[in-house]
Design a protein around this nucleic acid. Structure first.
Lengths: 226, 226
DNA sequence: ACGCGGATATAAAGATTATATAAAGATTAA
DNA sequence: TTAATCTTTATATAATCTTTATATCCGCGT
């Protein structure tokens, strides 16, 4: 179960408890810290997906903690505060706070702002989609193929073909299936296309195209990729 | 030169004017729209860096416009509203709003929230503000480009294009995607624009435009930047 | 092991489509 | 208005796809 983890840094036990119950009933996993110092420590030891930070203390500590967190922590930090003065809000936001809510806040709004912050921070994640086949690496997201770290120049049809193979590693793909996937339903009998293109790709990716390691022909049936 | 562009969609002329003055004096370039329909149109024709959307109307139109925008627009949308009821806030945030301010809002806070939203949306793609590609340096924060330490004179479209490329280094960007990002949703088939502008940029940044090192064409698909 | 037929591989020419570039016309901002 | 920029149009060039021709391979029966 991969719940979203939230760390609450707040020195008021009641609010902490209230928040915890509220968040947990909305299927978040919640950790708490009673003061800034232990909050920093907990965040460092086990970085949560989002931090709720109480900054409403009269001293400077809340803002300091925000700054310290932002030195390395890039996920959302939502500030909760009893203060509703503009200076405070501006300061927190400019110090890298993701959002700022003044107490008493409405729990529905807080939850919505948490959802919004997490939604946005998930977009940040650049998913690696690298597939490695020995010296051959296919990056589906960046849409390119490298052979021994050198970028290969492939036409779009060649690329479509090799990524179809890559996505079906080890599986035998019939001529008919490949033709349907790459060229469309009307081309299912144009086996010669396939031969030409497989030949092209082999010239580019195989060290010895006559004894291919990656694209294996399965006689009378189709091809298999390794 | 290359200011951050904000589109205000608001039907109250006074507020519109007030916001415009306020934002412009903070060095933003401001466009306005009097109603949702023309706002959508303007956003599509020339996507701004951020949208301020008044959603406080009693009818549903504000929320509808937010939804329509979010079908393709991924940069920040901050909601301004006379409504301060929770349902409205939650609804807007869950529909993809970046932030929500209730009127009357404090201008300092609004500005801080705008700064925060823009900061985050830039982080979305890349944290670095200064990007170095050999002799070519692109400073996203300062919005300028240097070639061998000499500042390049780029039009704003050229700058938008090159910074889009820079933010997606190594990744193939399709014609359609680039056109959508730079010109807006209505331009996704105007591939020739792209050819002209890529040509212009190459003349400025490539030592040999006929054998480009930075902007590589991926035939039939789009371009890749290095 | 040999030869046969069908399947596969390779090369290269022809056809098609995509791209680069210049330059004219239209639009926009100062 | 002028100057800069954007949009269109036209055309040469380049890349890719399709087709044809021919060579090679593979499995099978003898």
């Amino acid at each position: 179960m991969n719940k979203v983890e939230i760390l609450i840094i707040d020195d008021e036990p009641q609010i902490q408890k209230l928040l915890k119950i509220n968040l947990e009933s909305n299927d978040y996993s919640v950790k708490t810290a009673d003061n800034g110092k232990s909050g920093l420590l907990q965040a460092a030891n086990h970085p949560p997906h989002l931090i709720l930070l109480d900054i409403g203390l009269p001293d400077e500590s809340g803002h300091e903690i925000l700054k310290k967190l932002r030195e390395w922590y890039s996920k959302p930090i939502i500030i909760l505060s009893v203060q509703d003065n503009e200076t405070d809000i501006v300061r927190a936001l400019d110090n890298g706070a993701t959002d700022y809510l003044s107490k008493p806040f409405r729990s529905g709004e807080l939850l919505a702002r948490i959802r919004a912050a997490i939604r946005r921070s998930e977009n940040l994640v650049n998913k690696e989609t690298k597939m490695v086949f020995d010296e051959l690496v296919i990056d589906l997201a960046k849409m390119f193929v490298t052979l021994n770290d050198k970028v290969l120049k492939l036409t779009s049809t060649e690329y479509n073909l090799i990524s179809l193979f890559a996505k079906n590693e080890g599986r035998v793909l019939t001529h008919k299936y490949i033709l349907k996937e790459i060229w469309g339903v009307g081309y299912q009998t144009e086996t010669q296309y396939l031969r030409v293109f497989v030949g092209q790709i082999r010239k580019k990716i195989e060290s010895n195209p006559h004894q291919p390691k990656h694209i294996i022909t399965v006689n009378g049936v189709g091809y298999r990729f390794h």
